[in-house]
Design a protein around this nucleic acid. Structure first.
Lengths: 248, 248
DNA sequence: CCCTTCCAGTGGTATGACCACTTTCAACCA
DNA sequence: TGGTTGAAAGTGGTCATACCACTGGAAGGG
């Protein structure tokens, strides 16, 4: 009979996916394990080899399999680089999602900084500190400055020592890195921006060192809010200038 | 000659991917556009249909294509829902990460509840409220109670109206749903738990209605912390009882 | 005019064959 | 005896062809 051939009444591709989900959750497949050959797997799952290959390819694209020609397919720890590819594509399609991704960034950082206040060690402090120094040295260079700003925030998230938060942060980081630089280019000419940047970041840093979660989160939120404010001001300035000097 | 057949000297699958990357970034393929049929595409790209299908499947899994049986493949705006698949597989690989995922949950909810205070409308209020009522009705049933607890928190996140946060929450929620029920089963017998659950959730709800972000986040964090506390107590109780009454 | 039926086009699956790469090991030569 | 070589087996990579299942519209009948 055509139905209930193996165990699932699922058809085709979905059968393969559910098989892997089960195997992984049950622990039958561990990291580094080698899968059966495509021919054996297709036979045992009751699907054709092309169908099986479509599923394996998809899993490989998500980063869960490492398929090597002539050797076989191996279970791999999913790596985040897929997600950065994904976000890059999606940004090309709808640039307006960046604002919303910012909400995710704020969420992650605010929780991570609380954890950092509890968990960070001296090595974390010195790492964050060095990025802060770097940030102060590059105030006049939008590109290097944006990069330093970005790595400063990354080091805070890392100091939280939560794999889940770090993973999520990395997933959106490719977008954030670019936006850091763009923002710097926008706001570099706003009066008082240099002093503000130094003070804001230093206060955030000091709150972590003081191991005061409430203060740290509060400072960080203020930092984000004021950053928004500066960006609005720079837009206003740009448009005002455009009105009096229509061409560049 | 075998090489330089079309334009790229790439072979097979990679040729298909690079083709789509170019088409998408160049704007030749817009949202909602219908792709050529698999047979035509395969012919025009100089690859076989199975190979083309592997690539299309992978793109569909990443959310960039919507393939419909009998109709064709359409270019789709990739939403962030791929993250759900990603995290499902991801955590299947390392089940011990579940405690850490809780940090992600806290991060998302605390930011979402702040947004909810600004953005939520009457419909959101009534939805959250109804889930709160449901929660109060199911205090004695660990399963239904855990489910109600879960949906209450979901409705808060939805009220924040941030697609990125909602998606991330969905991604980790499949794990959390199970843990909600398990926790209820653990803590259902702890003295005072019923009153606490009602009060804590009601206060969180009222803070949202009052549109007070700081209070709402504070209550929510307390809720999480006290939940931890209750769980610890129940463990202590269970082990103490086990010492005096070794069986069951 | 509406409903039914059929058909062409599409994705979904299956089969079998062949190619390219990797590893192994046995045969061969020094 | 020891080292080198190359043949064979097993793997993923690709291809061609055929057929099935679903969709939608056109042609036919009521």
């Amino acid at each position: 009979m055509a139905l209930a051939e193996n165990a699932d009444d699922l058809q085709g591709t979905e059968k393969v996916f559910s098989f892997f989900r089960e195997q992984l959750l049950a622990g039958a497949l561990k990291l580094g394990d080698r899968l059966l050959s495509e021919r054996e797997l297709a036979l045992s799952l009751g699907v054709s080899r092309p169908v099986l290959r479509e599923a394996l390819r998809s899993l490989a694209m998500l980063g869960f399999l490492d398929i090597r020609h002539g050797k076989g397919a191996y279970v791999r720890a999913a790596d985040i680089s897929v997600l950065t590819d994904f976000f890059t594509f999606s940004l090309a399609q709808q640039p307006d999602i960046l604002d919303d991704v910012m909400q995710a960034r704020i969420a992650i950082e605010c929780q991570a900084i609380r954890l950092a206040c509890e968990r960070a060690g001296d090595s974390d402090f010195s790492r964050i500190g060095s990025h802060l120094s770097r940030l102060m040295e590059t105030l006049d260079d939008p590109e290097a400055g944006g990069e330093a700003d970005f790595t400063f925030h990354v080091s805070i998230v890392e100091a939280g020592r939560s794999p889940a938060l770090i993973t999520l942060y990395q997933a959106v980081s490719e977008l954030l890195r670019r936006s850091h630089v763009e923002r710097r280019q926008l706001t570099v000419k706003v009066p008082g921006i240099r002093d503000y940047l130094v003070d804001a970041h230093r206060e955030v840093f000091l709150s972590i060192v003081a191991r005061d979660p409430d203060a740290a989160e509060k400072r960080l939120r203020e930092h984000f809010a004021i950053g928004d404010e500066f960006r609005r001001k720079s837009f206003i300035a740009a448009y005002s200038k455009a009105a009096s000097q229509p061409k560049d």
